[in-house]
Amino acid sequence: MLTRLPLFPESASTMAGRVDALFFFLLGFSVLLSLLIFILIIGFSIKYRRRASNEIGASIGGSLRLETLWIVIPFLLSMVMFAWGADLYISIRQPPPQALEIFVVAKQWMWKLQHPEGQMEINELHVPLGRDIQLTMTSEDVIHDFFVPAFRVKADVLPGRYTTIWFHATKPGRYHLFCAQYCGTNHAQMGGWVEVMEPAAFEFWLAGGTAEESMAEAGARLFQQFACANCHRPSGQGRGPSLVGLYGSQVRLQEGETVLVDNDYLRESILTPRAKIAAGYEPVMPVFQGLVNEQQVLQLIAYIKSLASPPPVAEQQRSELPSQ
């Protein structure tokens, strides 16, 4: 796999081919335009080179027609590039609805990854071939960036919020994982590998792990441990709203606006509950900032997700896997 002088990166995701196609379009355009300009410049410089020391150039002031031409044509071509690039970007930014969700916590200078089943990894990510994989990522300290060149995807990983990235691996193998956002002393060491495995091999790998509980189970345990259940009763009769069926729904807030219950909203509601108060409830929930770490927040979210009906997508999919 490692040649001494690689000139083009490996392509191992569905996105790679699409990114490369636009890249080659831009490359073709650039080569043609620079050749045109270089040939004209060099050609004019030779053809009209000064032959007598007192020679002067022709008296030409400009041409409105030419100016219009070389404003309008580049503009139209650039709009093609814009539209193509934007279309691709929307695909990159929008994870498919049924994607398998893996959670990533970055810190100086390591990647901590956790599968829904509870399997944890550091600086290595095992994923199955041929599945849509979505990473939900946050950072414990500074800004990092999750970058897998072979998949042509990257996204900054920020403290205090979730960012996502998704890919669909098409070729088994080991691919570089880099931190692409400068994050301090050992930035260059903050990398690892993404290992794309055949689905059966992946199942085998997953079963061989040491995970004692899934992320949702760990979240349920934390839910009891922090006595969340005292208020958030399934019946809805508690001091806080019921969390059953909550994930993905719209919640009305005190001020009258509504908000979508997603990872970011749940994270904020756990760490700083007073930021947004659900209508009909008192702001009595204690602040959990500093009491739970990023990983635990993700586990709590996984648990709340598992309370949503229908049963969590990821687990449902995972159980279907071996039949592929």
Partner: peptide, 12 residues
């Protein structure tokens, strides 16, 4: 610069 302005390519 046109490559970098193209959203989908800039991601890479």
């Amino acid at each position: 610069g046109l490559f970098l302005a193209a959203l989908g390519v800039d991601v890479h």
